[in-house]
Structure formats: structure tokens, C-alpha cells
Simulated scan of single mutants.
Amino acid sequence: MAAIQAVRTALFYLLFIGQTALVAITIGIIALISGRTPFTWALAKYWCRSNLAFLRFITGVKTKVSGEENIPAGGCIIAAKHQSDWDVFSIFPYSGRPAYIVKKELMQIPFFGWAARSLDCIEVDRKKGAEAIPSMMRQAHAAIERGCRIVIFPEGTRKAPLAPPDYRQGIVRLYMELNVPVVPVGLNSGLFWGRNSLVIWPGTAEARFLEPIPPGLAPDVFLDRLKKAIESESDALILKAEDQGLVRPVDSDLRRKLDAARQARSAQA
């Protein structure tokens, strides 16, 4: 099974990387000439949806997204758990006009960076730490004024399923500065397409948009509420996937974390 799935994964990566390069080059060239256009926006949507289709038909990863009724009609921040590249593809179709916050290194890639800027992406230089915040805020304000929804992964990088959370201060600063609701998103995608994984495993990757957190809370109250919402829902979706049966191998470390998460939820019940 592992050998077959490794071949399926290699085929997916071949299509994914090849298509990403072609789409980035096309959007990047058009962006240099005309900026954002209906065609480039449609191409970005195609890129996300086709990648989800490739995942399903080549690797066996199905996609389920729920809770979109919790996304406010106006400007907001969508704050999601980040376990896989799947997270970007799955959230995109539900976010209206998204402005993803991405690291500066990605924005410096020829064609890809040009395409990302034309699609409202906001760059942040993580090497500068707190010094990068003012620039991010200026870009975020401009994006909100253009009618975007800010999409951020509050931990700043992909995390393994059930790994200890590590939320950065950027999400708190955005919340305080923009004064808009924040929609938490829990997900379980890392069970199937893990960070730096050589094999993508079949299953149903699931994301859920949760009840928005209103603006105006104290910073510590907001962050505590956000963490509890995202982590609790992500844990629930991971345990749900295990109950339905995991094809992927479960090593001793993941088994320990699954058992601990299940015991913690039982204690809370």
C-alpha cells in the first residue's frame, strides 16, 4: 500500500508543481502588464479547485468544508490552523476576495511573487520580527478597503497534527488594528498531507469555519478564545478522522498524542 501511494503522490506532485509554475508565469506576466484582471482571478480559482481535484482522484484525499455561514458579509479576518498546503486550496473558494498573508521569501520568487501581489497577497518579513508589523498593517488596511478578507495562519508555519500550538502576535495586532471580526478555522489536513511528507495518504481532509469572534475584546481574551476555538475544533476533526479509520500508518508519537487528545476531550465532557 505504501509503495502504491508513494507512486500516486509522485504523480500528484508532478502535476501540482508543473501546473503551479505555468499558472504563476501566466498570472505574473499579465500582472506586470495589466495588474489584476478577471481572467487572472479566474485562473487563480481554477488553480485551487484543480489541485483539490488532483488530490482526490490521484491520491485519494477528499475535501470537506463546512461552516461557511459563519463568514460575515463584510470585511473580516479568517484565522486558520495550518497543517498542509491543502489549507490554502480549501479556504480560497469560500473567502470571497482573499488577501493571504505570506512570508516575504515567497513574494521574491519571479512570476510567483508578481502573481501573488496582483491577487492581493500581503507580505511579511518574518526575519524582522516586530519591526515587520507596521508594513503588514498598512497592507492589511489597504486590502480591507479594497473589499478583501484577510487570511492568516496564526502560527506562521505548518504544524504537525496535535503538535503544541504556537500562536504569533501578528494575529493579535491585526485584530486590534483592523477592528473586524475574526473567523477561526479548525482542520485536520495534516493527517493526510503532512509537512514535508513524502507520501500523501487517502482520507477526508476537513475544515470548519467557526463562529466569528467579535471585535473589541482585550488582546489576551481574544487570543485565548481564538486558540481554544481553533485547537478544540482541529482536535475534534482529527479524532473524528481516526474514528472513521486512518489508512496512514500511526507511529508511537502520533498514537500517544491521539490517546492524550481523546482523554482530554473525555475529561471535558
Rank of each mutant, 00 (worst) to 15 (best):
G18R: 13
A236C: 05
L258H: 10
A163G: 13
L198C: 02
Y100G: 04
P93I: 09
G113N: 09
T9N: 07
F111L: 12
S95M: 10
I109G: 01
I152P: 07
T59H: 00
A160Q: 15
S90H: 10
L239F: 04
L22G: 01
A44D: 09
I122M: 04
N188P: 08
L239R: 05
L14V: 15
G67F: 07
V247I: 15
L226H: 04
D120Y: 14
I27N: 04
T20V: 09
Q263I: 14
I152W: 06
Q108M: 14
D224Q: 11
C76S: 09
V180T: 08
P72Y: 14
N188C: 11
M176F: 02
C48Y: 02
E155G: 00
I17Y: 15
K81C: 10
V185L: 09
L223V: 13
I109Y: 03
C121W: 04
P93G: 07
Y100A: 03
R255C: 01
M1F: 11
P212R: 08
R138E: 14
L223D: 08
T40M: 11
M176S: 14
Q5Y: 10
R262Y: 11
G96C: 08
S50H: 14
V61S: 00
P154H: 06
I144G: 00
M107Q: 04
L15W: 15
P202K: 02
R265Q: 14
A236I: 04
Y13G: 01
Q5I: 02
R8K: 15
G186Q: 03
R126D: 08
G190Y: 00
F39H: 08
D251P: 05
L223I: 15
R126M: 10
A207K: 02
E145W: 05
F111R: 02
R138W: 05
P134D: 04
S197P: 09
D235L: 14
P98C: 07
Y13F: 15
F112T: 03
I29Y: 08
G75M: 07
N179C: 08
S90W: 01
L55A: 12
A269Q: 15
A267Q: 12
K62Q: 14
L162S: 06
L15E: 12
P165E: 05
S197G: 12
R36P: 01
I101L: 12
A24T: 12
A21Q: 11
V61N: 01
R56P: 06
I171C: 10
N179F: 06
V185G: 05
S197C: 06
A264T: 09
T204P: 02
V61H: 01
S189L: 08
I200T: 05
R146N: 11
R126V: 11
L223E: 12
E177Q: 14
A160F: 10
D120C: 07
Y13T: 01
D220Y: 07
L237S: 03
I17W: 15
A207W: 02
K45E: 15
D235P: 00
S232K: 10
G35E: 09
G216F: 07
T20R: 06
V65G: 05
A116N: 06
Y94E: 04
L237N: 04
I101R: 03
Y46P: 11
P134Q: 03
I171W: 08
